[in-house]
Amino acid sequence: MPVRHDKDIPIWRRRTTARKWGVWGLWLLGTAIFVYCWQLISDKTIWMFVWDAPTQAADLASRMSPPKWGYMSELWRPLWDTLNIATLGTLLAILLAVPVAFCAARNTTPSALLVRPLALFIIVGSRSINSLIWALMLVTIIGPGVFAGVIAIGLRSVGFVAKLLYEAIEEIDPDQVEAITATGANGPQRVAYGIVPQILPAFAGISVFRWDINIRESTVLGLVGAGGIGLQLDASISTLAWTQVSLILLVILATVVVSEWVSATIRHAMI
């Protein structure tokens, strides 16, 4: 009891004495672990390299500048590939995610015992593997190139899109579906009139948001051979062509800024 009586006057404290000591003890333990870990990291760090870091960074920066603008002519094509990987991958993901989402949502699943766990498994499976790892596996399966990238982005995004979409389906207003049912509508009509209008804004927002994420993810897929601007990045780093690297990074930055602007504009328009 945090309330204690002192000559009939009740005194209230936030915690009892025992809990107070407990909280203090946990803080002590936390601090001790932190200090210990600090010590461990410090011992295993070669401090000479760290003291050297500003010099090294300055050196790298000088080697990266100025960006080799002439290299741009060789980047348009991979940039176009990157955009295609992101866009086609997102479309593939949407195509697969919509049925998965309807199977995963509690209020629309055909069977809560059989189909729903399967759909949830697909979602978790897709989400638990990074697109870079999907790409790595797909490059060994179907060979290097843009196609592997598209599939990798698609498989990674299915879970994301399906998860957010099925949450949106579960949050719909059931009265509207009930009203459509009461008119004598059949199953597909109930979905088209009762459910789809309610989830359309969420659907558009999720898709565009995922497309935006995929633009960023597809820029690195080339590192494992799955096409796009990452191939050039990998090649430039390997050959220590730092002025090309800086140009590629600038191009990626510009692409991401533009895609974020596009996605924000579309989402704003859809509400």
């Binding site: 207003d173 009265d175 009203a179 459509i180 008119t183 009139y193 209008p197 309610q198 804004p201």
Partner: peptide, 14 residues
């Protein structure tokens, strides 16, 4: 059988 609802139950976005 036509049905009329308390919270109208219109499809809001249509």
């Amino acid at each position: 059988m036509g049905m009329i609802f308390q919270e109208y139950a219109l499809v809001e976005r249509l």
